[in-house]
Amino acid sequence: MSESVKAIMLARIRQAIAAAPEPEPVQPDFQVHDERDVATIRADFTQNLLDYKASVINTTAAELSRQIAELCLQERIQRLVLPVDVPVSWLPAHIQALRDDPPLALRDLDACDAVLTGCAVAIARTGTIILDGGERQGRRILSLVPDRHLCVVYASQIVGLVPEAIAAIQERAGHPITLISGPSATSDIELSRVEGVHGPRSLSVLIVQDR
């Protein structure tokens, strides 16, 4: 039956567009490459993260684990969830770290204070980090259920514009991809903005200078 519905729909579509003219080709004359210098792009990334109520910490590879430890202390994070492949070198001492291996049950995940992930690419113009399930990012649920999200972004992962980021993840299109811009938020009640609805209530981005 479904096959015949499909045939009917396709026939109707073909009939509807039979006389339609072939449209002009798409002019890709919008910006696909950010001409700004690297320092400006990174400053823009930080500014846009702050604008959307994420917190930003600039650090180096050597300082990273100390910064994470400090953040955990400040935010009173005791149970920290990690994707399987987050490097040991990121890990702060004195923190109970739970690797998602074997996969954590939902309720266990819910009982954690925070998650620590890397990312695939980040967009300066919009203050966005993108997770594509690749290295150091884990399952989607990890960056969703815990109350806080700590995300490590290497400076070399920051691109200027949305088209650059889409091009960067194009090959990963078959995997689950999440674009994150600030903590979850709603403006549904009298347009008054409330941060932290269902996704993490806070997003802390650690930018590691790697070049």
Partner: peptide, 18 residues
Amino acid sequence: ERMNPYTSIWSGVTPGDG
């Protein structure tokens, strides 16, 4: 907004995720 807080993109099913 410059970008909405969350955008999800997926294809079919992914074993072990979702």
